[in-house]
C-alpha cells in the first residue's frame, strides 16, 4: 500500500511537471526564444525528476511503469491516429491536435529542425509520434545510468 502510494506520488509529480510545462511553454511562444529556453529547462528538470524517482524506488520496473503511465495519454492519442481511429468519430478527429499539444514542452526544439518533408508530410509530423516514447525513455534512462555507474 505504502509503495503503491509512493508510485502514485511520483507519477503525480511528473504529471504536474509535464502539464504545467505544456501551459507555460505554450504561453512562452508569445515571447519568441523564451519557449526554447523553457524547453531546455524542461528537459533538465525531467532528467532530475527521473533521477529522483530512481533514488526513491530503486526499482527499474516500477520506474518503467511510471514512465509508461505518464505518457499513456500520448500513447493512446498517437496509436489512435496511426491506426486510423481518428477518422471514425468526430471527436477523434481532434486526436492529432491533442497529441501535438501533449508534446508542446519539446516542440520548440523540434521547431528548430529543417523544414524537410517526407511523403508530403513535414518531419515534425512524424516526430509527434516518436516524441512520446522518447520522453518516456528519457525519464527512465537515469535508472541505467546509475546502474552502470555502480557496476
Amino acid at each position: 500500500m505504502k509503495r503503491g502510494f509512493q508510485i502514485l506520488k511520483l507519477l503525480g509529480r511528473v504529471y504536474i511537471l509535464h502539464i504545467s510545462a505544456i501551459l507555460a511553454i505554450w504561453l512562452a511562444m508569445y515571447y519568441p526564444g523564451l519557449d526554447i529556453i523553457l524547453s531546455i529547462i524542461y528537459l533538465f528538470l525531467l532528467w532530475e525528476e527521473g533521477k529522483h524517482t530512481h533514488r526513491m524506488l530503486r526499482n527499474p520496473k516500477k520506474q518503467a511503469l511510471i514512465a509508461s503511465l505518464w505518457q499513456l495519454p500520448g500513447f493512446i492519442l498517437g496509436t489512435s491516429v496511426i491506426i486510423g481511429i481518428d477518422r471514425v468519430t468526430d471527436l477523434a478527429y481532434y486526436f492529432v491536435f491533442m497529441l501535438e499539444l501533449w508534446v508542446t514542452p519539446i516542440l520548440p526544439l523540434v521547431s528548430l529542425l529543417p523544414h524537410w518533408t517526407i511523403l508530403e508530410r513535414p518531419i515534425y509530423y512524424y516526430l509527434l509520434f516518436v516524441m512520446v516514447p522518447l520522453l518516456a525513455v528519457y525519464y527512465y534512462v537515469p535508472v541505467h545510468r546509475t546502474i552502470s555507474e555502480n557496476s
Binding site: 504536474i16 504545467s20 510545462a21 507555460a24 512562452a28 528538470l45 529522483h52
Partner: peptide, 23 residues
C-alpha cells in the same frame, strides 16, 4: 535550485502565472 525536488515541481506553475500576468 533546479535539483531541489520541491522547487523543481513549482518552477513551471510559477512561470505559468508570471506569463499569464504579463500577456
Amino acid at each position: 535550485l533546479m535539483k531541489d525536488k520541491i522547487l523543481r515541481i513549482y518552477f513551471f506553475p510559477v512561470v505559468l502565472v508570471i506569463l499569464l500576468l504579463l500577456i
